[in-house]
Write a protein that binds this DNA or RNA. Structure first.
Lengths: 226, 226
DNA sequence: GTACTGATCGATACACTGTATCGACTGATG
DNA sequence: CATCAGTCGATACAGTGTATCGATCAGTAC
């Protein structure tokens, strides 16, 4: 076919020149939509209308891209409140909320040290808001809250995914989990566990998170105000 | 080359017939030696002297293999001690120790619900040892401790790896991190954070873990004994 | 003893990954 | 206008998880 007969290629929407921000944004959109395993350099590049290797001008490896994604989300985490307890609670809640909006965060949180500008800015905001606290106590306290949040969020998101795999809401999932646990408990090998699972009150995710957080904050309070 | 000229293949050490335990053990050895990303079905199979597809007789996917690995390690986690506080502390410490022996555990802990037999047996041991505690309080308390441990271990291992990448011990790593942080702090954008990092006492990993755990246990104590 | 059947097994193949390499092109310089 | 240095990204490579399906083998029927 001669040139004249061929239609011009549909003119791609003129892409703004590439930069890290656009790359990270595209990666986050992919991850939000289809999970972290949907983030491949090829797909990110395709979403931006460029070849995969083009990205290596801006990042040295995929790991760096993931680091940038996590740091970008840290921009959304800004604890507010009066007094150290409200600040730490806000830190925990906003982090959890960010993980709800970006479930892939649960896969990355705590996986690598966070030293990006937004992560540091978050740290600055926290430390600044903890002005009244003894300087030697600040790091241990913030570290402990971070650790709890990372673990709690991971557990929570993991459970949510397991529910979703079966396409079930919470109740159906527990009903489907039930038979397996019932059969297992029927062996009599886990009597104490069986009792707790069967007889104890079951809390929803919100309450579970908050109760654990309260434990931790109570314990912190006892040592800080001492 | 004719058959007659070719030497017989070295007769492979007669491999015991395959089973899940052997597969999981091989995978764990690979992960212990070279990290989780060294665990591929091909490598595991090669270590066992079989073809990759052979494994699919025993597992349905790689994820299942990882689940089995985590469950296998749960067999090592058996909290002991008198009284709920010692039991929970032991739970946390033995889990942390397992993660030190199997660093890849930090990548998997909390990533999927743990319902395997050894994980349930661990749960049984914990719940049984918490006999004196109010039945409705058991789950929230254990869940909170688990969350803290998962997050704390992840952070700790992540830091340890970052140190190792540079081939440095702790002091050199901080010295190498120093310049970056110094330069960043020199911008004046993180004054409060800079003060804490520069002036506050720095705890080692053991102390950091234990302090956070004490916060949590103190808070639990306050509510349990109420 | 032979022929057939059913199940089992694993080699091959596929689609995809992250990224090293290096030829082609571009813009600057003599 | 010719040459060169430097940049860019298409191609290629080594690896991944796993679907497929032909070959193989054990067991059965005659």
């Amino acid at each position: 076919m001669l040139v004249w007969e061929r239609p011009e290629p549909p003119n791609r929407p003129v892409l703004a020149p590439l930069n890290r921000e656009r790359i990270v944004l595209a990666a986050i959109q992919l991850a939000d939509a289809d999970g972290l395993e949907a983030v491949s350099l090829r797909k990110v590049a395709a979403a931006l209308g460029v070849g995969p290797m083009r990205l290596y001008t801006y990042i040295a490896s995929k790991e760096e891209l993931l680091d940038l994604m996590v740091d970008a989300v840290h921009a959304e985490i800004r604890p507010v409140g009066d007094g150290w307890r409200e600040v730490l609670r806000s830190l925990a809640e906003t982090t959890r909320q960010a993980a709800h909006e970006h479930e892939w965060l649960a896969d990355l949180l705590g996986g690598r040290p966070q030293l990006g500008p937004h992560a540091l800015a978050r740290g600055e905001a926290v430390v600044a808001a903890l002005g009244g606290v003894d300087v030697d106590a600040v790091m241990p306290v913030v570290t402990a809250v971070d650790a709890y949040v990372i673990g709690a969020v991971r557990r929570e998101i993991a459970e949510r995914r397991a529910e979703r795999v079966t396409g079930m809401d919470e109740k159906r999932w527990q009903a489907s989990l039930g038979p397996y646990l019932e059969r297992t408990f029927a062996t009599g090998r886990f009597p104490a566990l069986a009792t707790v699972v069967r007889d104890a009150a079951h809390l929803d995710a919100d309450h579970t998170f908050r109760i654990g957080l309260d434990f931790l904050l109570d314990g912190i309070e006892a040592r800080i105000s001492r």
